[in-house]
Design a protein around this nucleic acid. Structure first.
Lengths: 237, 237, 237, 237
DNA sequence: CATGAATGAGGATTCATTCAT
DNA sequence: TATGAATGAATCCTCATTCAT
C-alpha cells in the first residue's frame, strides 16, 4: 500500500533544486550512504547539531535543517535522541566532555607556579577563543536557565579539572611565597573564565557599541596579555 | 518552557470546552481596559516583551504570549512594532537607553580616582546583578550575532558613557600617581564588564558544574569585593 | 520574508489535482469562504469531526482529513479546540447534549404506563438505529476507557433524562398494578439500552458470523418488536 | 495513552543519554531469550498483541510497543504476520477460536430446558465479564465495520455453537411446554449477547454518566440475575 | 531464525502574521 | 485605535515497515 508510493521525496526535491541550474543537473547532494555504524551516525548528528544549536540557540535551530546537513535523516535524530531537547542535551554533554578531556591533557604541575598560572590563563583564553561554538552553547544553556545541563547525570556535568589545577598552582605559589594566601581557587577560576568568556560571548554587541574590532590578531593578543596580566597582579602577594 | 504556557493553554481549553454553551458567550474575563494612550500602550508592550525576550530569547519568545500578558491585543503589537523583530529591536533599544540614562546620572568625577574607580566597579557589578533582564538580552543579542543592535541608528547604539567616565578616572589617577600609565579605558571597561557580566550570565551553568550557589548575599558580596580588588590591583602602578 | 513565498499552497495543490483531469480544469474544490462566524465555523468542524471520529475512532481519525472536509482549515481546528483530543471531547459533549435535548422533548408522562414504556423502548431503539454515529462514538469512548467523557464537566456529562422518565413510568405502572414492584429504573434502562445498542454496535461482526442481514426493514422491525416485547414481559407483575 | 509508553521512552532516553560512553556499549538489559520454537513465539506475540489491540484499538496500538513487550523482536512480527493488519487478523481469529472451543465444552443438552437456558445465560454473562479483552476486540472490529473478520476464512469465522445450543434448548422447552412456540434462536441469542455485552462494553460511559459502579460483586451479581430473569420471562409461554 | 539500524511518508501542532469589522 | 477570527507555512514528532548482517 505504502510501497507503491515510494517515489522518494529526496529525488523529487533534488530534481526541483537542480531545475534552475545547468541542464545536465548531476545530483550532487550528499549521497547519504547507509552507514550502519551507530557511533558514526550519532557523532555526525551531534557534530552538525552542535553547530546549529550554537549558531541559533535551542529554539532557533531547526531539526529539519540539522537533518538536512547530516549524513542521515531526520528520523535518525529521533531514533537516537528522542527529541529536539534530547539532541540538545547530547550536544551539551558532548561539548563539556570534550573540554574536560582537553583540560586534563595539560601538564602544568611541573612548572613554576606563576608560569603555570600564566600558561593556564592563556590556554583558557585561547581555548575559548578557538571554541566559540562551545562558548555560545554555554550562553544558550544559560538563557535556558541551565535546565538541560541540570538534567545530565552527575558524571556528565562533572566539574572540570580547572579547579584542581588552580588549587595546585595556588598552593605551590603560596608555598613559594609568590602568591598571596587568601586566594580561593573557585573565585580565581571564575575571574579567569569571565575574562576569557566575555571576549567571545559579547563580542558582537561590544564591538558595535564601542566601534572596535575585537577580532584582529593584534586586538586578540593585547587582550590576552591584559587578561594574563590582570590575573597575575591579582595573585601577587 | 512549556510550563510557562500552561496558563494560556488552560484558558484556551476552557473556552473550547464551553464552546457549545449559550451563543452570545463572549469571553468576558480579563477585560483589557482600553487605554487610548499610545505611549502607555507601547510602554506596556515593551515591558512585557522585555521580560519575555530576556527569558526565552528571540526565537523562544511567543508573540501570542506577549500579547496575552499585555494590556492590549496582538494586533497592537503589529500596529506599533511591525513584526516580532521590530518589537525585539524596540526592546533592545529601550534597554540600552535605560542603562545609558542611569550611568550618566552617577557623579564620580569629583571623587578621588581610586575611590571613584572602586565605586564605578561596584556600581557596574550591582547594576548588572540588579538588571538581569538586560544582561540576558545582551546574551540573546550576541547569540544572534548582534545583528539587531547593528540595525539600530547610530544614536540608539551610542556607546555608553562608561568609557568617558573611565577615561576621566584613569587620567586623574595617572596624574595623581595612583595608577599606571599604560591603561586603556576600553580594555579596562571590558574587564570590568566581563567580571560583572559573568556572574549573572553564566550563573546557571557555573553553579551546576561547580556545585556552588552564587546567589547568596555572602557569595555576592565576596564576589563583588574580589572583582573590585582585581580591578584596583590591575590599575596600581 | 515569509510574505514573499506566499504562493498559496492550495492553489498549487488544486492545480496538481486537476492536472490529470480535463484540460480546462475548473477548480471545483470547496470554496472555503471566510465565515467570520465562530459558531458556524465551530459547528461545521464538529459536524465533520463527529463523522470522522465515529467512523475511524480517535486514533484512526486524521486531523488533516477532518480539516479537508471542513469549510475551514486545519489551523482553525487548533484555534478552537486546541488539540485532537480537545476536538474529540467537543464532539463527545455535543453528541451527548443532542441526545439529552431530544430525550427531553418526548412527552410520555401522560400516557398509560405500559404504553409509555413500549413507546420509550421503541423510541430508544429507533434513536440508536438512526444515530449510529452517536453509538459508534460511545463505543470509541469506551475503548478509551471513558477517559474523555470523564474530563467533561459535571453538567456536560449529566445523566440523560431516561432514568427519570423510566422512574415515572415504573411508579405509575406499579400504582396501576400493571408492573411488578421490584423494578429498578437504572437496571431497566441498562437493559433497554443494551438491547437497542447491540443492534447497531455489533451489527458487523454479528451478521458476518451468523450470516444474517440485520439491516433489512423486516429484520429491523422484527427486532424492535422483540426488544419491546422482552421489556414488557420483564416488567409484568 | 501516553502513560503506557513511558517505560519505552525512558529506556530510549537513557540510551541516548549514555550514547557517548564506551563505544562497545550494546544494550544488554532485557535479554530476550531466543526461543527457537515458532509456535511459542507466535503464541507469545499474539498474546501481547491481543492485549494491546483490545486496549487501544487497531489504530491506537503500536507495533513498536507490542514488540517491546514480546519475547521477540519487531522483525519477527513481520516475519510471521506480514503486517499490522495481519497480526490483528491473527489476534481476532485466535480470540474467536478460543470462545468457540470453550462454548463447545459446555454440556447443557442433558439438563431440563429452563435450567439449561438459565445456565447458558449465566455462562454467557460470566464469560463476557471474564473476557473483556475479547469483548473489546469485538468492539474494535465493529468500529472497523467488521472488515477484518470478513477477511477470515469461512471456517475461521464460523458461527459459534451458541445458536445450536439455543435451538436445542428451545426445542426441548417447547416440547416440554415450558417455552412459547414463536421463539427464534438467533433473536434469542442476540438478546442474551446484547444484555451480557453491554455490561462490559459500555461500562465506562455508563458508570460515568449515571454515577454508578458497575464492577462491584454486588452490582455484578444483581445484573446477572436481572439478565437471566429477563430471558426466562421472555421465553415463558 | 533473529536483530539493531535505518527510512519514507505521514501526522499533530505551532507560529508569525493578516483580515474584516 | 482596537480586536477576534482566520491563515499559510513551517516545525516537531511518530508510525509501519524494510535492510544489512
Amino acid at each position: 500500500m505504502r510501497v507503491a508510493r515510494q517515489v522518494t521525496k529526496r529525488r523529487a526535491k533534488d530534481e526541483a533544486a537542480s531545475h534552475a541550474s545547468a541542464g545536465g543537473g548531476k545530483v550532487v547532494a550528499r549521497a547519504k550512504t547507509r552507514t550502519n555504524d551507530p557511533d558514526r551516525t550519532k557523532a555526525n548528528i551531534i557534530e552538525i547539531a552542535t553547530h546549529e544549536f550554537s549558531e541559533k540557540g535551542l529554539s532557533g535551530a531547526r531539526i529539519d535543517e540539522i537533518a538536512e546537513r547530516t549524513r542521515t535523516s531526520k528520523r535518525m535524530i529521533y531514533y537516537y535522541f528522542e527529541s529536539k531537547e534530547g539532541l540538545y542535551r547530547a550536544v551539551l554533554e558532548d561539548s563539556y566532555r570534550r573540554i574536560r578531556t582537553i583540560e586534563a591533557s595539560l601538564d602544568l604541575e611541573n612548572k613554576p607556579p606563576l608560569e603555570a598560572l600564566a600558561q593556564h590563563v592563556r590556554f583558557t583564553f585561547d581555548y575559548q577563543l578557538g571554541n566559540q561554538e562551545f562558548i555560545r552553547l554555554v550562553m544558550v544553556e544559560n538563557i535556558h536557565h541551565g535546565q538541560h545541563i541540570a538534567q545530565l547525570s552527575r558524571t556528565q556535568q562533572e566539574g572540570m579539572g580547572a579547579i584542581e589545577t588552580l588549587r595546585n598552582i595556588v598552593e605551590r605559589g603560596i608555598e613559594a611565597g609568590v602568591m598571596r594566601k587568601d586566594l580561593d581557587p573557585i573565585d580565581l577560576h571564575m575571574s579567569i573564565s569571565a575574562l576569557s568568556f566575555f571576549n567571545v560571548a559579547n563580542r558582537h554587541t561590544f564591538s558595535t557599541i564601542f566601534k572596535v574590532d575585537m577580532t584582529t590578531p593584534a586586538a586578540t593578543a593585547a587582550r590576552r596579555e591584559s587578561v594574563a596580566d590582570m590575573i597575575l597582579r591579582f595573585v601577587a602577594p
